[in-house]
Every structure is written in structure tokens, then in C-alpha cells.
Design a protein around this nucleic acid. Structure first.
Lengths: 181, 181
DNA sequence: ACCTGAACACCGTTCAAGT
DNA sequence: ACCTGAACACCGTTCAAGT
């Protein structure tokens, strides 16, 4: 078989973290998945830490492009709605967010911060475009974002359908359509 | 020195998890903290898993009594406000919630579910008392709870003061005082 | 009744040796 | 250039032996 690339290892790591959690990430496991020996890992990476760091950078990049797509939607209210609905898909990304935002590995915090900053900024801008003034938009964006993150975690311990929740959250958190003038 | 008790080990475990995360929990570490050898651990517990299970049960119990205290407040709006403010204190409990709700250990999920069910039920009852009808109260409680959990996680990656956030959340999520009749 | 200390399996890491 | 396989330290677990 062809040799493994750095990207192969990174993708396998992200998938494993998203599904089994960070604690279950192990070099022998990944090696078995990829069909090689654990020793070969150290030709591509200097340590498990480096693998995680590089994988996180990859995830960060993916999140950035995912946001860019939603940004194409012109109507700010529809854009917000799309963001809320996206919040219930993209399960690997959510698995990663959930698995890592509580982790105590030192380089996880900056990545989480960068991702949440980017999404908060996006929310604030959309709220401003939807007619809120700056402090209102900021406060509302923060509330919406925390509700989003909280919902990710809630979904973890209960299988219940959250579509009613999303509907209510959108009603509460998306500003009314401005009146025509 | 006197011998260690089961409770000593449980308390040490909860404190360690809350502060350093679940991944850093290690029997040699705890043993060193308690001034004994790791071998002695296995006189009190059959496995690390059992220690975690029993510790989680202990935490569950603590959360229950913490809720009971807030329940004493008669005015439902003030009770909700107290709950929101408590949400920014009790740091060990929050550290535990954060460290465990994403964990893949099998007995963590039921405990998290029990705790969140209890707090959701409490919120729903308070919202009903504050004048909302049943479905409104349920939806609003769910939104409030997810915002609360999300705020715990957001606080992790940014040191920023969240008191403005709490003020806005309370304004948005606590129903208006009913008019006197 | 509670603890020590040695033993073993598993994972992270290193590295000489293979192709 | 990429991988194997043996080696070593660390942690979870067991257990005979100490007090």
C-alpha cells in the first residue's frame, strides 16, 4: 500500500477525537486504523502533542471556510437562521468542539477562542445588519452563541429531538423583520 | 497519620477533575496528594472507574442540595435571578460539569443527564410560577439552560468579565413582573 | 483494617535497522 | 523516504507481605 501522509494522520486523529473523545486518542489505535506500526508515526510527527496541534489547526481552517459559505447569504435574518440550522448539523465539527473546549491541553484553548471569536464577530455583524445597535448586537450575539454551545452539550446526554428548541431559540433570538418604510 | 477514608479519595478526585480535567486524574497523583502509595488505593476501590463513579454520585448529591437552597426563595422571578447569579459562582461544580459533560466515560452521561434534568425541571416550574404557560415555560427553560451551559464553556477560553452578559441574559430570559390587578 | 512494594500489561517515545 | 521492532518510562491493576 502507498505510504501515509501527514494529512492522513491528521484526518484520522480528528475523526477519532470527534467520535471517541480526546482521552481515547492513541497512537497505536491510529496506526492500526491506518495499517501501519506505531513506530512509523514518529517519522511524520515529533510527538502526539504535535499531531494534535496540527490537527486542530486543520479543524480551525475548516471552520473558517464553513463560515464563509454562510456569509454569502445576503439577508441578515436568513443568514442568522442558516447559522442556527447549521448548528444542528456538521456533527464532526461539533464533536470536536465538545471534546476539546473542556480539555486542558494547552493549545486547545487558543483554537477554541479563535473559532468562537470568529463566530461571535459574524453574529454581531449580522445582528447589526438586521437593525440592532452595537451594544444590543453584541449582547444578543453572546446570548445566541452561548445558547448554541449549551445546546451542543445538552444533546450529548439526551437523544431528544431539538428542532422545537431551535424554533423557539430562533423566535427569541432573531430580531423582527424591519417594517417597510 | 490517620488512614485515608473513601470520602478522602472521592473529594481529592473531584477536586482534581474540576481543576486539572479528567485526563490528568491519576492514582499515583492522588496517592501523593494524600500521602500514601498508589497500591493502597485498591484497598478502598476496586478500580479507577469505581472511584470516578462514586465521586460522581457524590457530586450529584451536592448539586441536589445546592438547588434545594435556591428553592427556598418564594418569588419565582427572584428565584430565577438567584439561579442565574449562582451560575457564575460555584466554580468547582462548574469545573466538574465542564470536564465531564464531554467525556466519553460511560457513567458520566447519566449523572450529567440527572443534573440537567433536575435543573431544567426547576427552571420550568419557576417559569410557570412566573406566569408562563406550560409549553412557553418549557421552551424558555431549555433556552436559559443552554445559555447557562454555553456560558460556562465560553468562560473557559476567555477571561473576560461576563457580568454584562448575565445582565442581558436575565433581561431577555426572565419574564416581566405580572401587572397588579 | 489499612498500607507497601514488586510485578505485569499498555501507551508514549526513541532509535537502530530494514526496504 | 518511510516503516519495523525492540527498548524504556509511566500508569492501571494485582497481590503477597507487612503493621
Amino acid at each position: 500500500m502507498a505510504n501515509r501522509t501527514v494529512q492522513d494522520w491528521e484526518d484520522a486523529a480528528l475523526a477519532s477525537i470527534a467520535e471517541h473523545g480526546l482521552a481515547s486518542l492513541s497512537i497505536p489505535r491510529l496506526a492500526r486504523t491506518l495499517g501501519v506500526t506505531k513506530g512509523s508515526f514518529y517519522w511524520h510527527f515529533t510527538s502526539l502533542q504535535e499531531l494534535i496541534e496540527k490537527s486542530l489547526r486543520r479543524w480551525d481552517e475548516r471552520d473558517r471556510t464553513a463560515l464563509e459559505e454562510v456569509r454569502q447569504i445576503e439577508d441578515p435574518r436568513k443568514r442568522l437562521a442558516a447559522l442556527f440550522e447549521q448548528a444542528m448539523e456538521r456533527t464532526e465539527a461539533h464533536g470536536l468542539y465538545v471534546a476539546l473546549s473542556a480539555s486542558t491541553i494547552p493549545y486547545a484553548a487558543p483554537v477554541i477562542r479563535r473559532i468562537s471569536n470568529r463566530r461571535l464577530k459574524f453574529l454581531i455583524e449580522s445582528y447589526v445588519e438586521a437593525g440592532l445597535n452595537a451594544p444590543e448586537a453584541r449582547a444578543q450575539a453572546l446570548l445566541a452563541y452561548t445558547a448554541y454551545v449549551g445546546a451542543l452539550y445538552l444533546r450529548l446526554s439526551r437523544k431528544q429531538d431539538l428542532s422545537d428548541y431551535v424554533a423557539h431559540a430562533m423566535k427569541t433570538l432573531i430580531p423582527p423583520r424591519p417594517r417597510a418604510r
